[in-house]
Design a protein around this nucleic acid. Structure first.
Lengths: 232, 232
DNA sequence: GGTCATCAAGTGATCTAGTCACTTGATGTG
DNA sequence: CACATCAAGTGACTAGATCACTTGATGACC
């Protein structure tokens, strides 16, 4: 229930402890993503430190998307408060790593699909169905990112941590992924396969859900390989 | 190969771009965890910004363990440079989330074990065997964290991203996990089960590796549930 | 009355210029 | 040779500014 934040040593830096305190504050006050935080100056006064110190703390939190800065406007709660797993925003990578990502998904997603089929409730099912439309309509640049079909599928497994895991995984090399999707992948086919998976989950057919997910990802994998060959 | 870091807008803050630049620098210069970075003052001079700005950038990187501060000593490369997935260090949670974690592992690790059995090479196998000893000897507080058996197992799958995923997962609520292990779990049994899984992987028996992993995690799950009941 | 430019207050972003606390390797003494 | 001492380098933090951006209120204009 309560946080076991005590990391003994007490040698943790002031800005680090303030970062924890702010994160705690967000949680205890029940703030949701988008809610405004006190200004950096106010926070500095509250914690009785100077502005640069509280800004270091905020930068820490920004890195994990717990908060979000908006220049001239304020500081807001970010989506990371609830996510327990994150994609590292500071990693480079090559095209080989895109293939590695698909392989990783191939390894874990079928099991997730099976669990979703076994455990899903009606609400999760409805949310999953809603996301099947996303494959058809390209994402607009300015609109808020929609929930991904595969994330909704993981959510239907009933385990929020599994959902976080898959979301983080999809966030890895996300730019390359959307690029591949946009330029080389068959949206129609994606959509159809999503529908089929949805149907299996709907009918609580775990084995079918797993198998359909496997073939679906295998198709994506082929696309990536083909792309790799084209680019040499 | 090359980074596609351009996030268009150019509205990204100076400290954010510097954080990227430092991460890039670490990668291009091939620095490994533990290697020293230039001092904050030097970096400030190199990037032609002031110290607080470069410190904000460094705090960002510290949050994802790409770098690490040592007061009075210097700034060093951290273990996060290579990790693509991370556990969010700023999340609270309760005991229910520990159970959720075990469930998540139960969902994805058997598949990983099977892949490890199918793809492992001799080097990975040797590394895996080495970690089987860890369950017996308690971790000393001051010693460097040892590689976890289950992480080594994921590494043997041949997919580094899968390995990162499992490592991040085990990092979630790690304090609770070690606490549970230390006080309630049967080390002997852990060790024996690890040995059995290792043997299955060694013999490239994918089905057995998956099943043994499942029962192993199920045992851990029972421990957590029992603990939950004891505490009410 | 409604639309739109203007403006001032609030906020984030960055700078400047320091002081204090800690680590570490060199120095020198016993 | 072992050990205390010390100075230089480094991170941690303070203090007080200035600039850039957003936003809601104001008020003029149509």
């Amino acid at each position: 229930m309560t946080t076991t934040t005590s990391h003994s040593t007490a040698s943790r830096s002031l800005s680090e402890r303030i970062a924890d305190a702010i994160a705690d504050m967000i949680r205890t006050e029940g703030l949701a993503p988008g809610d405004p935080l006190h200004s950096a100056r106010s926070l500095a006064a509250e914690f009785e430190v100077t502005v640069p110190t509280v800004r270091e703390a905020l930068r820490r939190l920004e890195a994990v998307e717990v908060i979000q800065f908006r220049h001239g406007s304020g500081t807001y709660v970010g989506g990371g408060v609830r996510r327990r797993l994150l994609a590292n925003p500071h990693t480079g990578g090559d095209l080989a790593s895109v293939l590695e990502l698909v392989d990783a998904r191939l390894l874990i997603e079928p099991g997730i699909a099976a669990a979703a089929a076994a455990n899903r409730n009606d609400e999760q099912l409805a949310a999953l169905e809603a996301t099947t439309q996303n494959a058809l309509v390209p994402q607009r640049g300015n609109e808020r990112p929609r929930e991904h079909f595969h994330v909704a599928l993981a959510a239907a497994s009933g385990n929020a941590l599994v959902c976080d895991t898959l979301a983080a995984l999809l966030d890895v090399r996300s730019r390359d992924q959307v690029e591949i999707r946009r330029r080389y992948h068959d949206r129609e086919r994606d959509h159809e396969e999503h529908i089929e998976i949805f149907r299996a989950v709907s009918e609580q057919d775990a084995a079918a859900a797993a198998e359909l997910t496997r073939t679906h990802l295998a198709a994506i994998r082929d696309t990536v390989i083909t792309l790799g060959e084209e680019l040499g």
